[in-house]
Design a protein around this nucleic acid. Structure first.
Lengths: 337, 337
DNA sequence: TTGTAGGCGTTATCAA
DNA sequence: TTGATAACGCCTACAA
């Protein structure tokens, strides 16, 4: 029922070839013809069928993102902003963004990636939450499927990525807190094989060395980076014999969980007890107290990833294969600011 | 490069027709042939090209949802859960979910709908935040584009919808608060032409009549239903001469804004001052204090909408054109529970 | 039970 | 500068 290129051609007594080329801006079509075609197409409400175009061009004009999360946990604010950022850029570039979710490193995750590739549903992927020996990286690289990542694994596989310097950020943060008199620290981390966990934990350890503080393994916990596990981890740490005065969390969601636990326990966060996050989700502005964090500009970073990915898909080489980003320290009430 | 139906056919010395039919479960193919085909397809990693199939079937196997939001405001928790619910069901039914956002009733909104329809990018739409005289309803109906909605406009256009009984819910809620001694109420609503606003406001007014309370127009505010405007509206209401003791909000995001304003003003919510929301977003469990609300099971409702829509797209008539849903009253700390 | 062939709406090649 | 025509990968009358 909708109008096709044939209808436009017929109306103008032109071949579909000419119409196609006129609309695609080829320069071997008479200026007048082009104008006519454009006007008529507009009038008739002609929009090229994306599907036919995709079949012909052998491109889906879509990019994929699979959230590495456990099933019940839908809306993590981090991913909301991340997806929004990707979606914006994808849209601007006339790409579709396909999203799904699966538990990290699960067979389910594997099968989604495979299906999307085999069914040619996407032209490339954005990955985050990279893990050590992440099968996705090897698999995609081996199959020549374009992809970009946040963080990167140190190996010989070559791919484009944005590296957020968590190590440097955390180190700076600890230095500040140390200046303010804090001496007992704890680190609430993520899964042990997660790159950002290792990166940020390293920054934490380095900082302790900087200030001659002994690293205490009991003061480092692993979580899955959710609010709920933040609640739990907070309780565990705060109820120890001699609790730390500064709690550094691997991300904001976890940190907000810790804040809520502290309040529940009747502890006042902001002065003698400080809590920090990482990410810069908007919710951190409204938490009680508002959350000091290392802002990695989620929205913008996600946009950039998509932009890089599309460049790679289109074959133009990406300038620098790895971009770096220094997270910005945002001081708020959870550190008494 | 990926394996096509031809490759499979060639390998087996069969025609592509037979392969196609075997895999699609037609019953006019020899059992043994089918087994062979299935095995070989599996071995070769054959997955039908979605795009080719779509072109042939003249269906995009995708449904669209355009968030009616202002540009800077990305992640509203309501929409997160709503989209997650739609995405889950769409995925289960092997449909894609395309999302975008545009300011309500803007020309931008209009152009996205038009483009998606003309380019045959989606087979149908899910609409929410319906407005009076919503052009979308008329436009889609006039163009025979399948769609489903939350709420429905009282006119002669016929379409499938889920109607959440906000009127009844609010009325019940007011009754409860009245029993507990509250006499001065306020209603923080949405845009004046929004159906859910009118619906819920009506429930509010009815309830006042029920209890012989005079309706005070100054105690009804319009917002765009965001957290930020909740903050503002809360301030406006709470700083009046003789502030109300019960604040009913059109949705949870707004209500949480009101909670934060109250805390900022040093007012204690829960006893003499109570606040309620509507939606049942997860954040309401963790707000301070936790939020009493009318839960409309966002996730499940969104799923159902998609299910209805797909049925309509596939041509099987929807049983009841309108489903009803009674929101469930969830009592929490913001009303002292 | 299987195969032939046409076409979905584009784009791209090649010739006119 | 324009036009025939052949794909892209799949589905489906219809014929064998």
């Amino acid at each position: 029922m909708p109008v096709t290129i044939r209808d436009v051609a017929k109306r103008l007594n032109l071949s579909i070839t000419t119409v196609s080329r006129a609309l695609d801006g080829y320069d071997d079509v008479a200026e007048e013809t082009r104008k006519q075609v454009e006007r008529t197409a507009q009038e008739m409400g002609y929009v090229p069928s994306r599907i036919a175009r995709q079949l012909r061009r052998k491109r889906s004009q879509a990019i994929g993102f699979i959230m590495p999360t456990e099933p019940p946990q839908y809306s993590d604010p981090f991913f909301d902003e991340f997806i929004a950022g990707m979606g914006k850029m994808a849209n601007d570039q006339n790409y579709d963004l396909l999203t799904s979710s699966a538990p990290p490193a699960s067979s389910e995750e594997q099968s989604i990636y495979q299906r999307w590739i085999l069914a040619r549903r996407v032209d490339g992927f954005v990955l985050n939450r990279l893990r050590l020996n992440d099968w996705r990286v090897h698999y995609l690289a081996a199959n020549d499927v374009p992809f970009v990542t946040m963080q990167r694994i140190d190996d010989d596989t070559s791919y484009a990525s944005i590296h957020v310097d968590g190590q440097g950020g955390i180190r700076k943060l600890v230095r500040l807190l140390h200046q303010r008199g804090h001496r007992r620290f704890a680190f609430i981390g993520g899964p042990p094989d997660l790159l950002i966990h290792l990166d940020r934990l390293q920054g934490y350890k380095d900082a302790l060395v900087d200030h001659g503080i002994q690293y205490d393994p009991d003061m480092t916990l692993n979580t899955n980076m959710t609010y709920d596990e933040g609640l739990e981890a907070g309780k565990k740490i705060l109820l120890t014999q001699d609790p730390p005065s500064a709690l550094l969390c691997i991300n904001d969601s976890t940190a907000i969980g810790v804040l809520d636990t502290a309040r529940e326990l009747g502890m006042k966060v902001g002065k003698d007890l400080v809590v920090t996050g990482f990410d810069g989700i908007r919710q951190g502005e409204h938490s009680v107290p508002s959350l000091t964090t290392l802002d990695q500009k989620i929205h913008r970073t996600a946009s950039q990833l998509v932009q890089m990915l599309i460049q790679i898909i289109l074959g133009s080489s990406v300038g620098a294969l790895e971009r770096r980003l220094d997270p910005e320290l945002v001081l708020r009430a959870s550190t008494g600011d």
